[in-house]
Design a protein around this nucleic acid. Structure first.
Length: 736
RNA sequence: GCGAAAGUGGCGGAAUUGGCAGACGCGCUGGACUUAGGAUCCAGUGGCCCAAAGCCGUGCGGGUUCGAGUCCCGCCUUUCGCACCA
């Protein structure tokens, strides 16, 4: 893949400093993934925990989410089960607050990406509160962002997985039925849970609302998640839509205690708003801060900030990837591989059966090791790392990719980084960019980098898409099998109606435009120019085969102009003021737009300059100015069409390379037009144009307006209320 | 459901702070050069109208303004993100 991609880049004329190349699958690189992992482990940021994986019982293997289709194994069709495995996590949650706060300082990142990260981190401020449970002899702790509504907490709901559930239902007469229900909920995926709607069971026990001192029922509910907060909630159906829905379903008390903002809820069955009076007196609503104070004073809870973010599960059981450098010693327990034994190399000769679990785990040579502490027998960890670990710090390695002594060179990294401009697709908005920000902060805390944010500026480019066709089963159909002759595309054999859909180019969707064919037909420069001309860089764009010829014609025209100028046909005709003015205007516009990645309009300005040069030459104009303007054109066009511009550069007799020439500078004085056209409006409608010498003086402009017959016709018999002059642009005469 | 972005010719798209809507390109129409044209060059191309004059025109309905694609209010549609996170 690397060889093929590099060949493609070369054909496109893309310039990289290949001396800095690295490959994250190379032990020379992933040795430092392992070193980094051990550093995290030593700092308590890598730890083991249970997490469910998708498990195919037939193939005996872990599946990625993408390989689970409708709850079944993509390959063999068996039902996929959730299995709990002990796996490695990186404690990104320890950095949740800093990762959230840091977003505010990233002023050159797209708002959209920052919002996505904020939502992902999901910071919520609230309070933990304990509700005494007499039958348990201890309280149950809940998290709420609305402690001010605690007077309206009329029941409590626990996640079915909550650790206190067993004790609560121990004496329940229908214990078995409840346990069966819990097992059913546990086996559901999050999606299935949601589709099932809200469901619950009453435990038969009560808790005490610490503010009303009422006994409130404790329920189990499928909508309460064990992974968030404490896995238990105080339900305030008067102010929370989910609690309301649950309360209605099971006939529980609904009480409103705070005015404003919250509801009204609509009774779904009757379609009427539920009116529940705000209760005052004893249950006086209190401001959030006051309630939290009181909770803390009474010692039943405290202010709490919680995050939606979970720890980063990096274990993979699929062989490929960086081996996690840990040993399990029969005597000493978990022991990291010593630095001098790194890298732990991934064996390349393991047997692949495509089933029965991780091939690494069955490779005895890999698994068996010696404990570095006691010298006894140890087994290697056979999980490998998520590849996002590779990409969480690679940008630091580009400076010294061959260094075998250390992960990177701190002084050099501090000089060159953070990355000035990062470019990538929006698909990395959350995972990659969040992991890289996390790892950079850890390295900062280790004193290895001076900065906390790895990427100063971020730009999300769009994708080139192309239409593909799907049949009624949503399967993509190759173009060769489509009949386009009728009013709508149909499958040649089955006759099925096909639905067009724009998608990222992909072999599986049969909508790829092979770059090699295009390059063979039009050249790499044409493809580059067209790809950037097609639309704004940050937006997705639809590839159009017809559109390519526009770029091809443009470059052809530039080429012929070069030939004509190089041939040196002297004429000494029309002066070149006009083309020189256009040149300076173009340099100015292009220089600004390139900075802002506005390549589509940049190219349109270059096309205009080329057209101006063409007009000048066709009019028998003086060759000198044409040559100057053309030279600037080559320099500005070079980033887009490097191959032909270098060729033309030489053809014109310039020495060296365009690439190394100095970017042209615009002279503001020479950009000025001699005569400016000023638009004349009457009551805001365009009624005429006047030409005035530049710079346009207000007095002259109004004189010209008065002298303009066409405009005067519109003013005849009218009373002029006022005249507005926008310098150099327009006059608006307001009449009655 | 919540949040964000966007809606401009037949198509991709232009339009610094409110100031000539449709730059540039594709396509289309006509012409030139050609044995030929799917090469190249020239001209035209938002709609109504034979044409001119004129009128209309940036998703829909209001508003602010001398002037609105651009600002404000209310809708509609599309795309993307999140989706029981207490």
């Amino acid at each position: 893949n690397i060889v093929r991609m590099k060949a493609q880049f070369e054909r496109w004329g893309i310039l990289y400093d290949w001396s800095k190349e690295l490959a994250s699958c190379d032990p020379e690189y992933y040795k430092w993934n392992q070193w980094l992992f051990i550093q995290l482990y030593k700092r308590g940021l890598a730890c083991r925990g249970k997490a469910p994986v998708n498990w195919c019982p037939t193939d005996q293997t872990v599946l990625a989410n993408e390989q689970v289709v409708d709850g079944r194994c993509e390959r063999c069709g068996s039902e996929v089960v959730q299995r709990e495995l002990v796996q490695w996590f990186l404690k990104i949650t320890d950095y949740a607050d800093r990762l959230d706060a840091g977003l505010d300082k990233l002023e050159h990142w797209p708002e959209k990406v920052k919002t996505m990260q904020r939502n992902w981190i999901g910071r919520s401020v609230g309070a933990d509160v304990e509700f005494p449970v007499p039958s348990l002899g201890k309280p149950i702790r809940v998290f709420t962002t609305r402690p001010d509504t605690i007077y309206g907490a009329t029941f409590m709901v626990l996640a079915p997985e909550h650790p206190d559930v067993a004790a609560l239902i121990a004496d329940h007469p229908e214990k078995a039925a409840i346990e069966q229900w819990i097992a059913g909920v546990r086996n559901q995926s999050n999606l299935e849970r949601q589709e099932a709607g809200k469901e619950g069971r009453f435990t038969g026990q009560t808790a005490t609302n610490p503010f009303t001192n009422e006994e409130i029922p404790i329920w189990l509910g499928n909508f309460v998640l064990m992974q968030y907060g404490t896995g238990a909630i105080m339900a305030v159906p008067g102010h929370d839509e989910r609690d309301f829905e649950f309360a209605q379903q099971y006939g529980l008390d609904i009480r409103r205690v705070v005015d404003g903002g919250d509801l009204p809820y609509t009774d779904k069955e009757n379609g009427v708003a539920v009116h529940s009076p705000v209760i005052d007196g004893l249950q006086t609503p209190k401001a959030l801060a006051k309630i939290i104070d009181e909770i803390e004073r009474r010692g039943i809870g405290k202010k709490m900030v919680r995050y939606r973010l979970r720890d980063w599960l990096i274990s993979r059981q699929r062989y490929w990837g960086t081996p996690i450098p840990m040993l399990y010693c029969d005597q000493c327990g978990i022991v990291p591989v010593p630095d001098e034994q790194l890298p732990v190399e991934l064996p390349v000769d393991v047997e692949f059966t495509g089933r029965e679990g991780n091939p690494l785990a069955k490779d005895e040579r890999f698994v068996n090791a010696t404990c570095p502490q006691c010298g006894g027998h140890a087994r290697r960890e056979t999980d490998t790392m998520d590849t996002f670990v590779d990409s969480s710090w690679y940008f630091l390695r580009f400076i010294t990719p061959r260094d075998s002594e250390k992960i990177f060179d701190t002084p050099l990294v501090n000089r060159w980084l953070p990355v000035d401009q990062y470019i990538g697709g929006i698909e990395h908005a959350i995972l990659h960019l969040l992991y890289a920000r996390f790892v950079t902060r850890v390295l900062h805390d280790m004193g290895l980098v001076a900065f906390e944010e790895p990427f100063a500026r971020l730009f999300n480019q769009g994708m080139i898409t192309k239409v593909g066709y799907r049949d009624p089963d949503e399967k993509w159909v190759p173009f060769a099998e489509i009949d386009f002759d009728g009013p709508e595309p149909r499958h040649k054999e089955t006759g099925a109606k096909l639905v067009p859909e724009l998608a990222k180019m992909s072999k599986s969707q049969f909508n790829v435009v092979p770059p090699d064919e295009l390059i063979a037909r039009y050249g790499a420069d044409t493809e580059r120019v067209y790809t950037l001309f097609i639309g704004p860089t940050e937006k997705d764009a639809e590839w159009s085969d017809e559109g390519v010829v526009g770029a091809y014609r443009f470059l052809g025209r530039v080429w012929r102009q070069g030939e004509e100028i190089a041939a040196g046909r002297m004429s000494g005709g029309a002066s070149g003021e006009r083309v020189i003015r256009k040149m300076h205007q173009t340099i100015d516009a292009v220089s600004r737009r390139m900075e802002r990645f506005e390549f589509n309009t940049t190219i349109s300005f270059l096309m205009e300059l080329s057209n101006a040069i063409g007009d000048h030459l066709a009019g028998g104009g003086d060759l000198g100015p044409a040559r100057d303007a053309y030279t600037a054109l080559l320099q500005m066009l070079h980033p887009f069409a490097p191959h032909i511009t270098e060729e033309l550069w030489g053809m014109l007799g310039h020495t060296g390379m365009v690439l190394k020439s100095r970017w042209p500078a615009a002279d503001p004085a020479l950009m000025q037009e001699d005569v400016v056209t000023i638009v004349v409006q009457v009551n805001g409608k365009l009624r005429g144009q006047i030409e005035v010498a530049n710079p346009p003086e207000e007095k002259r402009v109004f004189e010209a307006v008065d002298a303009n017959e066409k405009v005067q016709q519109w003013l005849a018999g009218k009373q002029i209320v006022k005249r507005i002059y926008v310098p150099g642009k327009l006059v608006n005469v307001v009449v009655k």
